[in-house]
Nucleic acid binder design. Structure first.
Length: 671
DNA sequence: CGGCCTCGAGTTCC
DNA sequence: CTCGAGGCCG
């Protein structure tokens, strides 16, 4: 190399070109040409040169990758063209139905080709290049605007700071490159080992680790994480165009971007189905997690004709595999007694990873369910995450271990030893003892967390003071003093005063919440609300006959009987009186008045996460207009508010033809 | 009586 | 989210 004759500016430019080339060999091609030591030597030379001549530093210099200062927070950055999300299909029928729909919409016999790519379980980003140089990049955000994480993206070696141009090529003035940032599994394991060694919290799965790494305030930390990228498409572009998506991928690859080697172009949907089957099997071979296959109509002209619905392109689908399953040992079956006295068996499992999280317990519902599935203590069992969330035991993985026995519910309550009962025709066993400690404790937890929603007072608080004997019933709660709290660990002067204040303030909670918190069998939130509205006060409810209670909306003979019986119990009446004396609300007020509004009589359901609203805020906004907010979709549902990462409700809503509302439509509705 | 629809209750992980 | 079961309508 000719550093002796070149000017510093020439040498700096040459070094940048060489270093970029080696980064590309290392990160994108995975085929380094020089040793790390040699790379470091060249890098150090450039650093020295730039330090001596600060005016030679360019923003796209390899030395600038980890140089930025930690930022206070990320700025919002608007995407030049929106980042849509993908509709999913879960089986081959769904895939074929989509293909039929595509053909119908194109309305001709013209051939349709598809491009398949592994669906990377990572964090989506959009990178902006101006005249061939990386200028900024942002997370997906709500699809319209994301967070500008440019300093962190610069630290990722697989992202070119400068595109590789052909000889004499004039680069596009503005180009949006779309990709998925991910953490290789090997890097994920190494990261967790390091975090564990430093006594820090480990990351639950590679996707969280990647997303978390990308949102680090300090780019130095991001730089220490072995993040990489698979580039999978283009957004806004000027000066370049393509006929097909696959052609665009090849172009991106030739310009130095890391595109997935397993992307393929196929002439028929049957070929696509074969790819999906193949990768479901082969996914374990990869050094990164994929949760399906992305399928796109190749022709950009066809894409334009198909268009989008609710920011979801009609020309693409995500084929997502059935929930992951795993095998593990069923160590034991325990019994928990709920607040109503129901006995719930649950499984203690040898911890096992399913779909990125470690599962160690799972519910088993009831005796019948356990024996129908033929699950026995000591068995190797198959575990899956239903709806991608709740762990479930599917059944035994093979023959039973020698000496295992069918599960039998204990004859006596594990907490109070009372004789367990099982009403004819019902699935659940019950502990009939009203004085069973489980009832009192679980009722208190329900009161504090669900009904009264007392800030700073939760399950641990109740359990702790229950153990101390300070707390046996709801009235006890209102007699706890700050002085008493301070005797216990974790409470200082301020926190004790705060907790007592929060408890006292809960006396202002409306009648329907009090009714809900009393733990009357068959009375949940909705029934409590209906009862409060109908009777207006606890006195009228107490003096009502079973027939009168049955007149309330949603209450038939069964519930009416259970409610009348609860209020005829001497002890329960004393509880009501005591709470009334303490100042709790037993008269209906503002909260019980039905809201009359433009949406009265309509029921809406919410799924997924909204950008600007929490679930509770969205619910309150709808209710303020008179609407009801349900949690399951049916034909009677007026609309489904769809946020990010919607659940199965979206599928159902589409099946029964319920109107879908994105966040904007939702905001118009409540405006 | 059958078939929705709605409600209640218990749930996992972080 | 899912299951079980009560309520309601045809």
């Amino acid at each position: 190399m000719s550093s002796k004759t070149a000017t510093p500016a020439e040498r700096a430019a040459e070094l940048r070109r060489i270093l970029d080339y080696h980064l590309y060999r290392y990160h994108v091609l995975d085929d380094p040409e020089v040793s790390d030591a040699e790379y470091d030597r060249l890098f150090d030379e450039l650093v020295a040169l730039e330090e001596a001549n600060p005016d030679l530093v360019t923003p796209d210099s390899p030395t600038q990758r980890a140089g930025a200062e930690p930022s206070a927070e990320f700025a919002k950055s608007e995407h030049l063209s929106p980042m849509g999300s993908l509709e999913k299909v879960t089986d081959e029928n769904g895939l074929r139905k989509w293909a039929d729909d595509v053909r119908k919409r194109l309305d001709s016999d013209e051939p349709v080709a598809y491009v398949t790519e592994p669906k990377i379980d990572g964090s989506a980003v959009s990178l902006v290049y101006e005249n061939g140089a990386f200028v900024r990049g942002a997370t997906r955000g709500d699809g319209i605007r994301g967070e500008d994480v440019s300093p962190n993206l610069r630290t990722i070696g697989a992202i070119p700071l400068r595109m590789q141009l052909a000889e004499g090529e004039v680069p596009s003035s503005v180009l949006e490159v779309r990709g998925e940032i991910y953490l290789p599994l090997s890097g994920f394991r190494a990261l967790n080992e390091r975090l564990a060694a430093e006594g820090k919290k480990t990351a639950p799965n590679p996707r969280n680790a990647a997303a978390g790494s990308l949102r680090q305030k300090n780019p130095q930390i991001t730089a220490s994480r072995p993040l990489s990228i698979w580039v999978h498409g283009l957004g806004h572009r000027e000066g370049v165009d393509f006929e097909g998506h696959f052609e665009a991928l090849e172009w991106l690859r030739s310009r130095g971007f890391r595109t997935n080697p397993f992307a393929g172009r196929h002439e028929s949907i049957e070929e696509v189905a074969e790819v999906c089957r193949e990768w479901e099997r082969r996914r374990v071979e990869l050094d990164y997690e994929i949760d399906g296959i992305v399928i796109k109509v190749d022709s950009l002209a066809q894409q334009r004709r198909l268009g989008s619905l609710h920011q979801r392109p009609r020309w693409a689908r995500a084929y997502k595999w059935a929930p992951l399953t795993a095998q593990t040992k069923l160590l034991n079956i325990h019994i928990r007694v709920g607040r109503t006295g129901n006995l719930n068996p649950w499984a203690q499992l040898e911890p096992v990873e399913v779909g990125g999280v470690t599962i160690s317990t799972a519910t088993l519902h009831n005796e019948e369910d356990i024996n129908r599935k033929d699950i026995r203590k000591g068995d190797l069992v198959i575990v899956q995450r239903a709806g991608d969330v709740i762990p479930q035991i599917v059944g035994p993985a093979g023959p039973h271990k020698r000496g295992t026995k069918r599960f039998r519910m204990p004859a006596k309550c594990p907490l109070c030893e009372a004789e367990v009962v099982k009403p004819e025709g019902e699935a659940m066993h019950r502990c009939p003892n009203r004085a069973c400690p489980s009832r009192g404790l679980e009722t208190l937890i329900h009161w504090v967390m669900a009904a009264m929603d007392i800030e700073g007072v939760g399950e641990q608080f109740v359990r702790g003071f229950w153990k101390e004997g300070l707390l046996r019933s709801m009235p006890d709660l209102y007699r706890i003093t700050a002085e008493q709290l301070r005797e216990y660990e974790g409470f200082g002067e301020i926190s004790a005063a705060k907790a007592v204040d929060a408890i006292q303030r809960s006396k202002e909670q409306p009648f329907l919440r009090v009714l809900y918190g009393l733990n009357i069998p068959q009375v949940g939130w909705v029934t409590a609300q209906n009862l409060a509205r109908h009777f207006g006060s606890v006195d009228r409810l107490i003096s009502a006959s079973q027939e009168e209670i049955q007149e309330v909306e949603g209450i038939g003979p069964d519930r009416a009987e259970a409610i009348a019986e609860w209020f005829s119990d001497e002890e329960n009446r004393r509880l009501v009186e005591e709470l009334r004396d303490l100042g709790l609300t037993f008269e209906a007020g503002e909260a019980e008045r039905p809201v009359e509004g433009p949406l009265t009589g309509k029921t809406y359901v919410i799924t997924g996460t909204l950008e600007r609203w929490s679930r509770e805020e969205a619910r309150a906004a709808l209710e303020a207009k008179g609407a009801k907010v349900g949690d399951s979709v049916s034909k009677k549902t007026a609309g489904l508010v769809v946020g990010e990462e919607p659940g199965s409700k979206l599928e159902k809503a589409k099946r029964v033809g319920v109107e879908l509302l994105d966040e904007k439509a939702f905001e118009r509705l409540i405006a």
